[in-house]
Amino acid sequence: MSEANPGGAAHPAHVVPTRIYYVIFGILMLCTYLTVQIAFFDLGILNTVAALTIAVLKAALVVLFFMHVKYSTRLTWAVVIGSIFWLAILLALTLTDYTTRAWQTFG
């Protein structure tokens, strides 16, 4: 059984060094600190832009490293990108409606 185990012994999965997890953790904590600090300054519309940019960066780090997508199959990549794409359709098409309802029509 030990030498021939065709159904059992898979190729060893990609083991991410723990050092990478600690580095990502540090960046995520730093980003959290930054997003709170920035919120107390009045930057106008840039407050929202900064908050969402940092949130997207944090989410990307979690997806790529903690969720191992960086090391995953192309099929997994396709599903992840597909989810972002479908979310973009949901947000973009609905918001083009709601954000333009107050506009004056011609004539």
Binding site: T35, A51, F66
Partner: peptide, 29 residues
């Protein structure tokens, strides 16, 4: 363990967006 972890990290990501959008929008004003 791997796929339970995927779920756990996803729930973390939802909070990463909820936190600035709910808690931080009125801080300077």
């Amino acid at each position: 363990i791997e796929i339970s972890g995927l779920y756990w990290h996803f729930v973390d990501i939802v909070w990463i967006f909820l936190f600035p959008l709910l808690y931080l929008i009125g801080r300077h004003a």
